[in-house]
Design a protein around this nucleic acid. Structure first.
Lengths: 139, 139
DNA sequence: CTGGATCCGAAATGATACTG
DNA sequence: CAGTATCATTTCGGATCCAG
């Protein structure tokens, strides 16, 4: 049933295209993208690569808390989706340079919007989270 | 594999784990938000609630593929962060209405930007993902 | 220097039964 | 109707070893 809209226009200043296809067979691409960039390190890698191309060890040292395995997995995932370009230089020792593809570069725009929102509202979220986690001792 | 539990007491999976068990390293709020909305169902719930308030079963039937457990956990997480408001009506039978808070409503703006990007570039991503997964005879 | 392979624990998710 | 409790499965993430 796609006609769930009973003539009630959403009074929102943001026009959501229609990210809910209401089809259990097909999942919306929004969820798909969120599942891709919603992991622990993907966004950090994208942001770093958005500044300039990095080599493997540059990324590894730039994030510092990521393991080699997760860095490789993250880059492979981004590369598979066409967001990151991998170029191997047959030097000695070998070096691999990672960079954002044009497609990956366009992701920086909506990602920065979300980042701005997160930074702006992080105190409010932290406050609400902390308040709801505590038992109501005062009232 | 087999049940080789080393006497681990059954953890209560319905209780939300402590957000910060100890003096964990402080990570950027962007990653924090991505970890929150990057799960499997949170965005769908936010979008549905962005259209209009929904009751529990409305959300459950609107998504259809989510289990009661995950719907409850998703709503609890959003409620804890102050993005979703929960109002109980002491009727018979009881009904609970969920709606976006003003803070949660502001999330729709950057989320719609990301949704638009995802819908726009979903074909390109799917094509790249499919091409790289195949043993294609490229170059 | 890059990164694949393997093992392990933790967390997320799903299915189901039960309850006020 | 709106959850909660429990269990099983999958996925995620880290540590380590090993290879080109």
């Amino acid at each position: 049933m796609s006609a769930t809209n009973t003539g009630v226009p959403a009074p929102l200043d943001t026009t959501l295209p229609s990210p809910v296809p209401s089809e259990e067979h097909e999942h919306c691409p929004v969820t798909d993208i969120l599942r891709r960039i919603g992991d622990k390190w993907t966004v950090l890698v994208i942001v770093l690569l958005g500044q300039r191309p990095h080599r493997f060890n540059e990324l590894h040292q730039g994030i510092e808390a990521i393991s080699q395995r997760m860095l490789t997995r993250t880059l492979r995932g981004l590369q598979e989706d066409g967001l990151v370009h991998r170029e191997v230089f047959a030097t000695v020792p070998p070096s691999v340079e990672y960079s954002l593809t044009p497609l990956g570069n366009t992701l920086l725009t909506p990602l920065s919007a979300l980042a701005t929102w997160a930074i702006e509202n992080q105190p409010a979220i932290a406050a609400s989270r902390h308040a709801n986690s505590l038992p109501g001792q005062n009232s």
